[in-house]
Design a protein around this nucleic acid. Structure first.
Lengths: 183, 183
DNA sequence: ATTGACCTTTACGTTCACGTCAAGGCATGG
DNA sequence: CCATGCCTTGACGTGAACGTAAAGGTCAAT
């Protein structure tokens, strides 16, 4: 009789992802103007606050990802502030999917992303002077990881399907029980 | 330059679930005889070691679940040792699915299981003396949770499907690139 | 010029889900 | 009888993924 675990915690609408998607009171433009450039182009780069909100994560999380090398931030700073492109946002989304859907830890996610980055670097003709053998190796590595990921996704989806069937069976039983009890 | 995060961690075959399914060397029956009962019935209750191995978790984990109230252990002890039925195994499996597939923490899982337990208690005619209103409440609670779970599972499955499409697109690009590089 | 919103780095704190001893109980096999 | 193997209950340790505060810089607006 030491800890007395009797917390009856509530069940959130969705675990570990805070119902992201636009906060409240969209009216007054609290947003600071885009720094130093008279007229903003259609796609001005965002700072960390906006990037975090749009991604449904905290600023701390984004800095943490950068610290781990998951995010490179093409255009770091302009007075010291981080700048996020849409590609960065996509990458953040990717990280979250790998984390939440497949359950990878950030280190493994780093491995996955780095393999894809190397491949993408080749594709984009940076590093035009890479030996063919090395190219093949990079490609093979990426393909291997891709294969493993696809297998994992399918396995997870199958488990979810099984779970859904189970839940639906329960639901049917519950509805029967409800009729039994009277409306 | 303090922490120097340069760990190039490997990608496991499957994150967070250690490729469970029978250890090596199935031959010598190291298993201790089932305690005190001359001949074992077809379904002797297992102790914690076997239950853990079959569930793909550690003994510590099972004790932890019990400590949190996730596992009740119908037949606790017989000389002090825990006994696990097949129903207990199923429950452990359920816990793991909720944890790994849906990302719930153990506290939330407790809430879910408790609601289902109350319903199941009614169903099995223990507590025959429960007011109809209370019965309705319990049923409604269980149905609500069930509905939320189903929605979550579907959402997660959809996200997985989207991810799979993305991965397959990458795979196609990779295969094209492979042909380009020569076999 | 000062406020206030946003940003920076540094660094310590926290929660969860266990891992890992330590010290000892209980049955079984040699 | 006693070693061996599995179990028990503490209780402290741990790694990952952030949370949170402190101290200060920058920029637009008042």
């Amino acid at each position: 009789m030491n800890v007395k675990v009797n917390n009856t915690c509530r069940m959130a609408a969705s675990p570990e992802e805070d119902t992201r998607g636009g906060g409240g009171a969209r009216g007054l433009p609290t947003r600071q103007a885009p720094k130093q450039s008279g007229a903003r182009g259609t796609g001005e780069l965002m700072r960390i606050g906006e990037a975090a909100e749009r991604s449904g994560v905290s600023c701390r999380t984004l800095r943490y990802y950068e610290e781990l090398g998951l995010l490179a931030l093409s255009e770091h700073s302009a007075g010291g502030a981080r700048r996020y492109t849409d590609d960065d946002l996509a990458r953040i989304h990717r990280i979250r999917e790998l984390q939440e859907l497949l359950g990878f830890d950030l280190c493994e996610i780093g491995t996955i992303l780095r393999a894809e980055d190397e491949l993408s670097a080749l594709r984009h003709a940076y590093e035009a002077d890479v030996a063919v053998d090395r190219r093949r190796e990079i490609l093979r590595e990426a393909m291997e990881i891709n294969t493993r990921l696809r297998a994992l996704v399918r396995a997870k989806r199958d488990r979810l399907d099984a779970m859904l069937e189970d839940l639906e069976a329960r639901a049917r039983r519950n509805r029967a029980r409800e009729r039994e009890l009277g409306s």
